[in-house]
Write a protein that binds this DNA or RNA. Sequence first.
RNA 1: GCGAGAGUGGCGGAACUGGUAGACGCACUGGAUUUAGGAUCCAGCGCACCGAGUGCAUGGGGGUUCAACUCCCCCCUCUCGCACCA
Length: 825
Amino acid sequence: MTDRYDFKSIESKWQQRWEQEKSYKVSEDPDREKYYVLEMFPYPSGRIHMGHVRNYSIGDVIARYKRMRGYNVIHPMGWDAFGLPAENAAMKRGIHPAAWTYDNIDYMRSQLKAMGLSYDWDREIATCNPKYYRWEQFIFLQMLEKGLVYRKETTVNWCSDCKTVLAREQVIDGACWRCDQQVVPKTMHGWFFKITDYAEELLQDLDKLTGWPEKVVTMQRNWIGKSQGLACDFQVEDSKEKVTIFTTRPDTIYGVTFMSLAVEHPLIEQLIKGRKQEKEVRAFIEKTLLEKQRAAADHEPDKHGIFTGSYCINPYNGERVPIYVANFVLMEYGTGAVMAVPAHDQRDFEFAVKYNLPIRPVVQPQETELVAETMEAAFEQPGVLIDSGRFTGMESAEAKQRIIDHATAKGFGKALITYRLRDWGISRQRYWGAPIPVIYCEKCGIQPVPEEQLPVVLPGADSPDGAHAPLHQQVDFYTTTCPKCGGAARRETDTMDTFVESSWYFARYTSPRNDQAPLDPRAAAYWLPVDQYIGGVEHAILHLLYSRFFTRVLRDLGYLEIDEPFTNLLTQGMVIKDGAKMSKSKGNVVDPSDLIERYGADTTRLFSLFAAPPERDLEWNAQGVDGSSRFLNRVYRLIHQHLDCFNDSTNCDFTALDTVNSQLYRKTHQTIARVTDSIESNFHFNTAISAVMELINLISTLSADDTKSNLEPAVVKEALEITIQLLYPMVPHFCGEMWEITGHDTALDHRPWPEVNTEAAREEEITIVIQVNGKVRSRLQAPADIDSRQIEEMALSDERTTQFLQGKKPKKVIVVKGKLVNIVV
RNA sequence: GCGAGAGUGGCGGAACUGGUAGACGCACUGGAUUUAGGAUCCAGCGCACCGAGUGCAUGGGGGUUCAACUCCCCCCUCUCGCACCA
């Protein structure tokens, strides 16, 4: 035997075996309870990085653990394969995006296989495959039919150099992230998913997500951003027009002293026409629009505004209210018009101070009295109404309701709920995405591509030198005939946002080769929802919200029976090095392949699990990897040292062990308990590994030469067998091999997880801590079942303790059974 | 600004419903063995004092308690998310 295990041959041996035997292929089995564990699928960027290693190691431990627990575990993997980087790489290297993508997939698949991950590779999907996006197009059409998709014109960020729409994240200081060209707003048509139809349900059901991190739930709640309030019409003076405002504070409506409109508000034109302010206001609007375009995301511009020359009437008190245009009012939210109450809204307060507008308190706090002249900030809390007509004297909460009721009764307003959530714009002017399956006919208008003509295939993707220009430049692609009238027509040339693919892939995994429907409802009903989903917190909003939306859409289309796709969510921390996230630009990247080459997959996995609990950031430490490697070699040597125990057939009475043997027996069962608990409660594999290390340390200590003869082979054998079983989900090749060389012929995947013998795990003797005035002064050994009176007696007669008492009489003695005694003097 | 989370040795991190702070690992120090080792084994390792020992220690300051990393109040720092949402 050598003193280090040969990870190379062991790992390739087991990987081959798993592959040949299809060890992790699963199918529906109504007699067994299923468990669906899923890691967010990767974008095939070229090589896997440490974040992937961490993500998939965590998932694989859970998959293997649950398998040992007897579950029918589905653990699939695939590729989020559409996206802009493929097009960029293609441009740069003169190859086709499809070729680049599929090459990357092949390489990364081999990297994942080298990690020994227990996937059912027969379920592998790549979203750029027409067999996948065909069904995405199908779902799109079903949604279109149901009115969940619509086309509208909006303003987008356009880069004139790259000739494409940019996502908001791709606009840096007003310029394109790639070519640095100034981004311009452009009005164009696009397709939208009506996610806002589900806003309320998506919000309400967040309460059901008890298996999600609070943080993610909160982020989604804020993102949906529900506000309840009053929509109320203010009649424009000397005009037929009305300004409709939205407020969440109807209780402050008697404190309105002016009105603010967004610069884009459609009414402005009429308000200023022919007035002396006309020119000035136009100039202001133009300037503000420019400013908005340029505004960096990280600072708020100062508040500016300008009087339009018009007034409107507060329907509650009949007062004339001057109408302003202000740069801080958003057209996209509410109604684009805000009633300004400087006394109770900080922005309005600042604006009023700047432009010398009146401040009128109408809600009084409990303790103090607000006086307009001395206010230094708005009072934004609820309180009791004053100077508010018939509502004076009411509490804010009641007043809100009464004021809304009043508006409803009089017909100039109503209760309104608004959401921050916008409909999801999915049109992209890029090549490498799923084509949107509609046809434009001059005569018949927008026509869905007939189902039997799906998929609308991306042209050129099947040959390496095929065309990959944006579809609107590919005449052969967009020239078609109308499915209705047969006349000349034009295909939609936009492709879908890549987030669409990832919004339902987890469901497709349940019947990945189905060519009759997007999903097999029976398979979906068996496997879904995903029991444990694992991925980076950067997807907390978009991907996870879209998936929740799609799940409901697929439910309403009759494919799914569930509301929520992911029962439990684990958001893993980043892998960092030298205090920063690993990135090429920082030059602190560790390539997982180098590690696997040098230390093996098991060591790499073990370290990524041991260095930090999953939800925290993991600081990469090269020496820490050595430590993990050392540990495995230590286990390896220890097993070899005790190989004879596995052949020993001496009878052993586990109920009558001597001190040394019962110590090991006890520790073994305590370790099972600790490891099981660490995994079950919060997936803190770091403490699970620590526990096994302690067990190994004990076996080492006890098997040092002078005491070895005392150890019972059966006790050592049990300890080592359990070590191997407990470590198996984390370091599967190593443990598979150890299991085999210790004479077992059933694969560990089919061995049940070890059971704790609670009797054996119980300590016989415990350490009782003696405190004097709360400070530890002494420790005593006592039998575990000692009662409080006896402990107290022992403590008071303890020599060290009496020294500290210096003859003083105890005022009080607190005894915590099995733990400590505190003597107060 | 708002929201969420986190501050524990030289480092990563332990500590159950308040009850021995620092498990486990890394680094470091001393020793053994070795031709050699980035191998292995033994011992030490929060800080202060020469020390058995004692005192001080979980971001800072108060408080509750016999007892606080843990509970309460105030403050500081860091990370992440949202960012004029009416």
